[in-house]
């Protein structure tokens, strides 16, 4: 693995400097959308179709 000696704070600072807020927000929104669809979507069609998956993954919100 890498032999660098930077800290967690350094990594956050670097990420903050390299990635502009809009990109970060877009990425976060995509992740949230995917997570929401898989875990919490209550719309009957999508909800029922993902039924087995939620059982299998042990996600309670089914």
């Amino acid at each position: 693995m890498s032999t660098n000696t930077d800290t967690v704070a350094d990594r956050f600072a670097t990420a903050g400097a390299q990635i502009d807020p809009i990109t970060a927000l877009t990425a976060l929104a995509l992740v949230a959308a995917l997570g929401f669809t898989l875990l919490f979507m209550q719309e009957p069609l999508a909800h029922d179709a993902l039924h087995d998956f939620r059982h299998g993954a042990g996600i309670i919100c089914h």
């Binding site: 660098n4 967690v8 990594r11 990420a15 898989l38 999508a46 993902l50 998956f53 299998g56």
Partner: peptide, 27 residues
């Protein structure tokens, strides 16, 4: 759809894992 959900679940966890791992690796 559930099988597809399984694939997407893996991608979601993998993406989150990659980014978070990079940030927290030094600790």
């Amino acid at each position: 759809v559930s099988a597809g959900g399984g694939v997407l679940w893996g991608i979601l966890l993998g993406a989150a894992f990659g980014v978070a791992y990079h940030l927290f690796e030094p600790g």
